[in-house]
């Protein structure tokens, strides 16, 4: 299903497309997105807001990323495995259309106490 749709869109968009579509065709192994954790947050940049001639998946991501949205949410909305969402986001990050916000962890690989304190405060505020 994907192959055919992809080819069709390719034909209609000969020029002006900045972001490659290796991801959906499976041709790419390395990408800025390859090692992104599923909870990494994505936000659209000014350049991304004005981007034109992008394929549907990329446009959808840029729209959703008007507010912070994670890789795993993007995968669910696009109905693609999270690995594909990761690569699509990597493509957009390479093009400067999105910023990616990774989890902040301390030397032992866990969230630091300041972040945990804020999380605790926020959760307690909800429990009343």
């Amino acid at each position: 299903m994907r192959g055919g749709a992809e080819d069709g869109r390719h034909g209609r968009q000969p020029a002006g497309r900045v972001v490659p579509v290796y991801a959906v065709t499976g041709g790419r192994t390395r990408s800025a997105g390859a090692d992104l954790p599923v909870e990494a947050l994505v936000t659209v940049t000014d350049a991304g807001r004005w981007a034109e001639n992008l394929h549907l998946e990329y446009r959808t991501i840029l729209q959703l990323a008007a507010a912070p949205v994670s890789i795993v949410e993007l995968g669910a909305v696009l109905q693609v495995p999270v690995g594909v969402a990761r690569v699509l986001v990597g493509d957009l990050a390479d093009a400067g259309y999105v910023a990616v916000h990774r989890p902040q962890v301390t030397a032992d690989g866990t969230p630091g106490p300041e972040i945990l304190e804020r999380l605790l405060e926020g959760l307690r505020a909800r429990s009343v």
Binding site: E39, L41, S70, P103
Partner: peptide
């Protein structure tokens, strides 16, 4: 990122 304050994803 310059255009918005820092964002922190967390998971449980």
């Amino acid at each position: 990122m310059r255009d918005r304050s820092e964002l922190y994803p967390l998971k449980i």
